[in-house]
Nucleic acid binder design. Structure first.
Lengths: 344, 344
DNA sequence: GGATGTCTTGGTAACGTTACCATAGCGAGC
DNA sequence: GCTCGCTATGGTAACGTTACCAAGACATCC
């Protein structure tokens, strides 16, 4: 085993041709399906391919005019977050169904990094871009910069940019989640807001307000914590619970906030607080084992993978055939659903 | 806005050259750093680049001999799982630090899909491969198939394949987790096994057995459920709890099993079971809010992102400079740690 | 048998880029 | 003034691939 054959560089079509005793064109034709190539030659070619471990050089292939690269550029803010992981998975699946691959970049929410990634993707001749925007300037996404490469935005839209967008039904989900608390008899409902994404944060807040308004309840600014300055969701929850007239329920606009809130609630219960003093919780974003929590938790559930699939489908429809699909920008809102909540 | 400029195809270096009134070579040199190009021409070139929105065609660039593609192929089993999402993030980060990008494919654990992805990656001239193997034949990973493209395996190793591997310290983690239960006075410790990955499953089982052996406890086959035939972790937990002499603690070999076990425990508590009748749990794989669970949960915590970073570093070290790093295969085991456990 | 058509094969050029070579300009040194 | 050396610029070829064209082989049909 030791000192075995040196790794060889990838063989070219020329070498395969030589090995099979035919011209490169015959190899090319065979690999393209074998039309108008004698079966015996095809076999010779295919066994040469197997023997040498040959793979067509896709980069060289995509160089030829009219040949697409088969790459989709995907830039998301945090791959480690299961939400975006599933989103990327959805994009990957749909891309794979058409034989395409994704080049993936993590922006970490940094606009500079996003610009860099987009430039790199364009250099790699991606056929399209799927992007979870990081905020900041959107100059690098203007049509004259992207040329003929279509773009789909996800989770967040950029005003003034006329491109396809996929979003969750943030407003509807927050509305229905809040309404569920109101229907259960709660009238003092805290709002735990969104630091990470102002756009979805604003939309979810809108849903919360709409539900309150519908029941004629005036929003109480003491109960609404959506500032960036808040140290953590746990701390914010503590502030809500320490109010003179604390909320009996909390609407939490995202996963991170929900986890923080539950941690704080857990701390207080361990310190001797009575369970019926603790608020019920509605969480935008699902999380596991919600049913085992010490307070009733309702989740606004959604499917980020489906969101990714939808984004990819929008993108692919813009690639279509030769002539670009020229329809105007579309906005897709994916439905969310309330998971059955234990009564408060 | 409507009927605005048609999207143009990506400009070429030739068009930039024409626009700037120089030759393509001067453009190329300018973009390569500008050595031996008059400053005034450089400026002309750069403004033509900006004006046309030009990006170098990396595919064409990588066609030239000696030029690397800057792509790393990454194939994982399930991007939606935060474990693999974070793993991929780690690989992406390290790749990005050297200006490389990752092409990502999801195998879904399907060996055929894995073969297909690897072939595609090779066709795209990736500089290296990072793979979470799906099992099945490994013919497509033999050195003569990969040529000069280095491979790093993660989470699972393939015997007979002499390549770099990164693993968690599965044995040690399971050993220490089980030992913690023994130290807390448990003697009947159930084992909830791994369906998804036989390799890590076997290693974790080994750690469990080692801990028992060290304390002179004979493993009881009634307490050990690691068959594929088990319907679900919840059902398996039910079987353990329904034993005449049920375990007072359970070691669960992965996240999925832990969640299933906790769901079953939750069901029984809601049906009136007494909390002190329920087993303590040690879970290999962290999960959020473990501290809020109705039974004491200790987790064997680890950092999949770091695992990904390590995998990428091993890979990059094989790329090094011109001549391939020829050292023999390395095996890296990433440390895990026990999260502080509430006493049982 | 000759014209016509179909099938098979190979040569050539081009995709976008840059290493290499050639050339021109210019200042320094004798 | 002539060479030498250096800088700046451009032309050419090649990377691996395949569309297109040309040409040969062979069968078909009148």
């Amino acid at each position: 085993m030791v000192g075995g054959a040196r790794p060889r560089k990838q063989p070219t079509i020329k070498e395969v041709a030589q090995h099979a005793g035919v011209s490169p064109m015959t190899v090319s034709r065979t690999l393209a399906g074998g039309a108008n190539v004698r079966p015996d030659l095809q076999e010779k070619v295919l066994s040469a391919v197997r023997e040498l471990g040959y793979h067509r050089n896709e980069n060289a292939r995509s160089l030829r005019p009219g040949q697409a690269s088969g790459l989709i550029g995907v830039a998301i803010t945090n791959l480690g977050n299961p939400y975006y992981g599933n989103f990327a998975l959805g994009v990957e699946e749909v891309a794979a169904e058409t034989g395409r691959r994704i080049v993936l970049g993590n922006t970490g929410g940094d606009p500079a990094r996003e610009r860099q990634l987009v430039a790199d993707f364009l250099g790699r001749q991606v056929e399209g871009l799927v992007l979870v925007p990081s905020g900041g300037s959107s100059d690098h996404l203007r049509p004259e910069r992207l040329g003929d490469v279509p773009l789909v935005l996800a989770s967040r839209r950029i005003y003034g940019l006329d491109v396809d967008v996929v979003l969750l039904d943030d407003v509807g989900g927050a509305y229905r989640g809040t309404l569920a608390l109101l229907d259960a008899g709660h009238t003092r409902i805290g709002y735990l807001g969104n630091v990470s994404s102002e756009f979805t944060g604003a939309r979810r807040y809108e849903g919360y307000l709409r539900a309150l308004a519908e029941r004629g309840i005036e929003p109480d600014s003491d109960l609404i914590l959506r500032e960036h300055a808040i140290g953590s969701a746990g701390e914010a929850t503590g502030r809500l619970l320490d109010l003179e007239d604390p909320p009996t329920a909390i609407f939490s606009a995202n996963n991170r906030n929900s986890i923080g809130a539950l941690r704080e609630i857990g701390r207080r219960l361990r310190s001797g607080a009575r369970p019926d003093e603790m608020p019920a919780l509605v969480s935008f974003d699902d999380f596991e084992l919600a049913e085992l929590m010490p307070v009733p938790v309702t989740v606004v559930d959604h499917d980020p993978r489906q969101l990714g699939r939808e984004a990819a489908k929008l993108l692919l429809s813009r690639l279509g055939n030769g002539e670009r699909h020229q329809g105007s920008a579309r906005l897709v809102e994916m439905p969310v659903k309330l998971a059955p909540a234990p009564s408060p």
